[in-house]
Structures are given as structure tokens and as C-alpha cells.
Design a protein around this nucleic acid. Structure first.
Length: 645
RNA sequence: GCCGGUGUAGCUCAAUGGUAGAGCAACGGUUUUGUAAACCGUAGGUUGCGGGUUCGAAUCCCAUCACCGGCUCCA
């Protein structure tokens, strides 16, 4: 008896009935068989030794298929677990999934806290296991209860808990077998896995940290080891290089070099002080932000930083967000709170008068500073802080206007993000299980988001059930210069606050209707956005943003006068320029300007005085030769106006 | 908040129980410089803060604060 399977190229192939994907690979080509590490069967990644059925669509996976890396990393996780248990026999294993660029495994290691030396040891043991070429063999667990008691005897309580939970899902066990076919280790796992460990050649343990069983801080505390694995040494080295590059771009590190921001023990953690250099960058961004909003019909508002607790009772923040709010301060016997959100304030402004449908949409925008309690352990430079300024806006509109408004927001998002040189991806987060409001409204709002995106040709991945309890939303993820993902803009259609505050407008039918309210932030918070920008640009802000746009370097004292003239003319066109008259060599001053990431250095000596210009040096392109002052001004103006990245 | 690590001059880092040190930066002087570091000198620290052990503590112990890597959460 033979069966027929479909191959990726559309052809069909007959093989023996009991054949596995491995047999299929062998029948196609020896070379393919040698490289094969798994198979995609009917769209699902499976073990190479999975038996095939008639009519299956099968693709043999080799390291050349990007999706195969999952197999490598997942199997590497098991090798790591085995290594850890070999070294620490008392260690119990929890879970070990793959993550972006790598994998981790959680362990309960009694009476031992991992050290960096342990990582080295584990790595050596992993290498030994990988080189010993253990085979991974999948077994169904026929008698779950027997297996459960075995796990319990071994003290593998986490595995037991998992098995108990999956007992009705045909749980499987992977045995790792040595050359003689003897099982040396096993783990409860759904798979799939590599056929054997000798494919594991390029891996590295990266760091360890604490974690909790099932991510629950009330449950057992575990130790997690993070690692990465790649098919080739070169891929691994490239990845490690990328990590190093990311480290060099760390905004906290660059802040010290470039004098950007600080936090202070005397002030408190998570409270950021913007130094003049970074404040300049922020001010330029804010000016641009205001221009773009003005163009799009937004009105600017300002709201107080503290408010009576009453406001947050009405908004419901006290109830649903109270944990993140600072405790009340007493003002004339009334409790007041620091503002954690800008929305209630904007609603106050809306509600000061009766609004007609003719007034809508109203778009209130504010660079609104808010204070939120964050647990001490999560604070991180400028990216995670306790006081920050959101580029917040609330749009009040009619149902008919909703889709158009969302469209306008998406347009604004695109304009801003492309100016800063980010690419992005959109996610439509739909109704979660726990939600408030009625389903028809949810559907209406979700459709508006979907249609707005669609009409702009913006592809939205669906994040099913990922919405806030009060709102479906479009979240946008940004990708920076080295491909890292950042949390970006968000657009939420609020189905809650208009009710709580009874926010209305008078329709053309002369009766009251509930207004639709959109929350949106484009930059997110100034702290996080600018912190991210520092890393995105590696501290080298484009000319339009650079705190110091150009520096004039006179060769000798006799060139000061001409230098002053260059500075003066550039300042007159609004540029941030100064002259470095210190008695240091030109080389020294160039080096310092380079290190400070000043975009342009303007060297002036005898020749430049004669040419009424300067020798222009760009921080990346180097010496561009002598230009006269008029040409320099034109060049700079063009680069600044175009906001060239 | 929790687990682990770290905290020495403005910055980067030495000094593992025996007198806290270097480079850069700063300051003073000399040098007038041509595209990524001129030369000489000066000053700078109760070793995060508070206790303890010891003849003696940056070093060992306790406590505390902050930071770092994660957990968790999120702008």
C-alpha cells in the first residue's frame, strides 16, 4: 500500500504507507535527508519522524527555512535543562519556551543561586550533550497516572502540574537517547524537536534572572536562564554583535557621554531631569508636534497637575487604576490626587457648554504631564519612569465621524513616525473577555478602526481579545534603526468615559446623543519617545534635532573674526551654533565635536577667510571641502527643512 | 514589590584585611594649531548612607538607599 502526499511545489509523491517525513526526505534526495531537521505537515511544524498520512501536504524543513530555527531553539532548551540537572541533581525543571532570538528555561534549584560561573559550566555541559548526538524520540503517554506518580517521585512537581492539566490533550514525552538507544533524560513536551542534538552547534547562555512559576508572584520563585541559539557560528556572532551594538546605544550610557538627562537620589527614582541638550531636542520635537496638530485641526489645552479625588471617582480611575495613583494629599480637608491621566481634564473642558453636532469633531490636545506609581524594580532610565509627559489627545465626535477621525489620526501617525525614520506595524486589538459596554457598540467601534486602517491600505494584524476593558484599539509597534521593536502610537475608541461623565452633543434631531471619544497618543510619552530616539539614532540626532547643529573651529586666533561672522549668520537663520575658541589643536577640537555627535564642523583658516566660507566637515561623511557661506546656509536650510534623518 | 548582581574622584576603571591609585575630564601655564587626543603642572575621595567585627575595613557581617539584569506591569 502506498499513500500520496503533496509537496510544496504542487507536485504529488507516492510513498509507503508507514513512511515518516524523514523517509519522504530520503526518497526525494539524500542531501535533503541529511539536512532535514523537521517538517511542516499541513501547515504545522512537526518532528522529522512524524508518520505521514494520505493527502498530507509536507514540506521538509532544513536550516535554510527560517521557521526551522524554532526547532533548534526549543531542542536547545531541553539540552540546557538536561545540562542543568546533570550539574545540579536537585534542580527541578519548569518550562522552557522559545522567545524572540532565543529561549529560556525556568528551574527550581534548591539551596543554590546561579552565578556567572555556573553559566560557563552549563554551557560546557550543553556542548558535551550536543556533541554526544543524543536522539530525541517522541512517546505518547499511555498511562497518565503512572507518569504523574513517576514525576512526583522524582520531585518534578511542575511537570506533574503541567501533565495533570494536559492529560486530555494526548500528552507526549520526549526521550533523549544516547548512541546505544538508552534514554538518558526525558521531559514532558509537546514538541516538535530536532531529530538529534548534533545540529546544535552555535549557542550561548546570556543571563539569568528570577521568575515565578506561571508568572505568579504568589507561587514558587524560580531561576530563569536566558540563552540564544543559531544554526551557524556566524549567525550567532552576528546576533551577539547586535546585542553589543544595542548596548552601545543604551540611552543611559549615551546620556552620560552627551549630557542629556539625569535622575537623583535626593529627588527620587523615576523622575527625570532634562539637561539643556536633551531639552533642546524635546523643544524642537514639541514645536514640530504642535505644527502638525495645528494643521490637522487640533485645539491645544492645558489642565492642572492635581485634582480633587472626586474627579477620579467619577472617571473610575480610582477604582480601576488606583494602584498606580499616588496617595491623596490633603488640601483644606479635601483629598487631592496627582493626575495619572489627562482624559478627565479634557472632558471637563468639553462639558463646560452644550455642544452641537456642528461643533464636532473637537480635538483637544495636550502635552500633559502625569504621575503614576511604578514598582521600584521596573524603572528604567527614561523609558520607564514615574512622572512623564504624554502627547495626549481626546477627540469628541459623532458616530458618523468616527471612521474619518481614525483615518486622520493614522495619517498623523504616519507623518510623525516616518519623519523620525521609524517603520511600523499595526495591531487591531479586539474585545477582551472582560469588557464593559454593549457588544453592538464594540462591534461598531472595532469596525471603524478596521475600516479606517483598510481605507489607508494599512495592514492590521488582529490581536484577538487584546483590547482594553473599555476600548478596542489600534496599537502600533515601531522598528528602530537596528530592527528592535518599540511600543508606539495607540488609538482607542473609549466606550466607557462618555457614559461615566455623561458626555453629550445635540444632534440635528435636536436631541441629546452620547459623544464618541477617541484617546490617542502618537509619541506616547516624551520621556519614552525621546529615550527611544536616543537609541534609534545612537545619540547622533539628525540636523534638525541636534542640540548643537554646527561648531565653528578657527585654526588660529586671527580667524576668530571670520568665525564670529559665520556663527552670527547661521544663528540668524535660527541655527544652534557656537565657536570653539579653546587653545587646543584643531584635531583635538574635531575629535571632541565628533564624540559629541555635532553634525557639522566648520573649520575656518586663511583659505576660508579668503573664500568667505568654511571647510565643512560632516560627522559621518568627513571633510566636504570649502564652501562659501551662502552655499553653506542653503545646504543647512535644506537639510533642516526636510528634517532629513 | 520579588530574585540575583553592582555601588571607589565629574567619567571609565585599579587596589581582596595593612598609608585609596591611574587615564580622561576640570583648573593654571606653555603652545597658534589644517580634519578623531600638543606639552608641563595643580587640585580632586569620610570608598552610596548607617551600624557592627577587628589592633586595623573599600575589602568581612548586618541594615538601608540607589542602580543593573529579569519577573510583573505599562506611556
Amino acid at each position: 500500500m502506498e499513500i500520496q502526499v503533496n509537496l510544496p511545489d504542487g507536485s504529488k509523491r507516492s510513498i509507503e504507507q508507514s513512511a515518516t517525513a524523514a523517509d519522504l526526505a530520503k526518497s526525494i534526495a539524500q542531501g535533503l535527508y541529511r539536512k532535514a531537521v523537521g517538517a511542516v505537515i499541513n501547515g504545522e511544524i512537526r518532528d522529522l519522524f512524524t508518520p505521514l498520512a494520505d493527502g498530507d501536504t509536507v514540506k521538509i524543513l532544513t536550516p535554510d527555512n527560517p521557521e526551522s530555527i524554532e526547532l533548534l531553539r526549543h531542542t536547545s532548551a531541553h539540552v540546557m535543562a538536561q545540562a542543568v540537572q546533570n550539574i545540579f541533581p536537585k534542580a527541578k525543571i519548569a518550562i522552557g519556551p522559545t522567545i524572540q532570538d532565543g529561549f529560556y528555561y525556568d528551574f527550581d534549584i534548591p539551596e543554590h543561586a546561579l552565578t556567572p560561573e555556573d553559566l560557563d559550566k552549563i554551557e560546557v555541559e550543553m556542548k558535551r550533550i550536543a556533541d554526544s548526538n543524543q536522539r530525541l524520540v517522541r512517546f505518547n503517554i499511555p498511562d497518565v497516572d503512572a507518569q504523574l506518580s513517576e514525576f512526583r517521585e522524582q520531585g518534578e512537581k511542575y511537570k506533574a502540574e503541567l501533565l495533570e492539566e494536559h492529560r486530555d490533550h494526548e500528552p507526549t514525552l520526549y526521550h533523549m537517547q544516547d548512541k546505544d538507544g538508552k534514554t538518558v533524560w526525558n521531559d514532558l513536551c509537546r514538541g516538535p524537536h530536532l531529530p538529534s542534538t548534533n545540529h546544535i552547534k552555535a549557542f550561548k547562555l546570556l543571563k539569568f534572572s528570577g521568575s515565578y512559576w506561571r508568572g505568579d508572584e504568589k507561587k514558587d520563585h524560580l531561576q530563569r536562564i536566558y540563552a540564544t541559539a543559531w544554526w551557524t557560528k556566524k549567525d550567532l556572532d552576528d546576533y551577539l554583535l547586535k546585542l553589543e551594538e544595542a548596548e552601545k546605544r543604551d540611552h543611559r550610557k549615551l546620556s552620560k557621554q552627551l549630557d542629556l538627562f539625569s535622575v537623583h537620589d535626593e529627588v527620587g527614582p523615576g523622575l527625570v531631569f532634562w539637561h539643556p541638550n536633551l531639552a533642546t531636542v524635546r523643544a524642537v520635537i514639541e514645536d514640530y508636534w504642535r505644527d502638525e496638530h495645528r494643521k490637522r485641526g487640533y485645539d491645544f489645552v492645558f489642565t492642572p497637575h492635581i485634582a480633587s479625588e472626586e474627579l477620579y471617582k467619577i472617571s473610575g480611575h480610582l477604582e480601576s487604576y488606583g494602584e498606580n495613583m499616588y496617595s491623596a494629599m490633603d488640601i483644606d480637608g479635601m483629598p487631592y490626587r496627582c493626575k495619572p491621566m489627562n482624559c478627565p481634564g479634557h472632558i471637563m473642558i468639553y462639558k463646560t457648554r452644550l455642544r452641537s453636532y456642528r461643533d464636532l469633531p473637537l480635538r483637544f490636545a495636550e502635552l500633559g504631564t502625569v504621575y503614576r506609581y511604578e514598582r521600584s524594580g521596573v524603572l528604567h532610565g527614561m523609558l520607564r519612569v514615574r512622572g512623564f509627559t504624554q502627547d495626549d489627545s481626546h477627540i469628541f465626535c459623532t458616530p458618523e465621524q468616527l471612521e474619518g477621525e481614525i483615518n486622520g489620526i493614522l495619517d498623523l501617525i504616519d507623518a510623525l513616525m516616518s519623519t523620525f525614520g521609524y517603520t511600523y506595524k499595526a495591531y487591531l486589538a479586539t474585545r477582551p473577555e472582560k469588557f464593559i459596554g454593549d457588544i453592538a457598540e464594540w462591534d461598531f467601534a472595532t469596525e471603524a478602526l478596521r475600516n479606517a486602517a483598510k481605507s489607508r491600505g494599512l495592514e492590521c494584524e488582529i490581536d484577538e481579545g487584546g483590547g482594553a476593558f473599555y476600548a478596542p484599539k489600534i496599537d502600533i509597534k515601531l522598528y528602530d534603526a537596528i530592527g528592535r521593536e518599540w511600543q508606539g502610537p495607540t488609538v482607542q475608541v473609549d466606550l466607557n468615559l462618555p457614559n461615566r461623565f455623561d458626555v453629550n452633543f445635540i444632534g440635528d434631531d435636536n436631541s441629546r446623543h452620547k459623544v464618541i471619544m477617541i484617546h490617542r497618543a502618537v509619541l506616547g510619552s516624551m520621556e519614552r519617545f525621546v529615550g527611544g530616539l536616543i537609541e534609534h539614532y545612537a545619540g547622533a540626532f539628525p540636523l534638525w534635532l541636534a542640540p548643537q547643529q554646527a561648531i565653528v573651529l578657527p585654526i588660529a586666533d586671527r580667524h576668530y573674526e571670520h568665525g564670529e561672522k559665520v556663527v552670527k549668520e547661521l544663528k540668524e537663520m535660527g541655527m544652534r551654533v557656537k565657536m570653539d575658541t579653546r587653545s587646543e589643536t584643531v584635531n583635538y577640537r574635531i575629535r571632541e565635536a565628533q564624540v559629541e555627535q555635532v553634525p557639522y564642523m566648520l573649520v575656518v583658516g586663511d583659505k576660508e577667510v579668503a573664500a568667505d566660507g568654511a571647510a565643512v566637515r560632516h560627522r559621518r561623511e568627513g571633510d566636504l571641502g570649502i564652501l562659501n557661506l551662502a552655499d553653506i546656509k542653503t545646504k543647512f536650510k535644506e537639510e533642516i527643512d526636510s528634517k532629513k534623518v
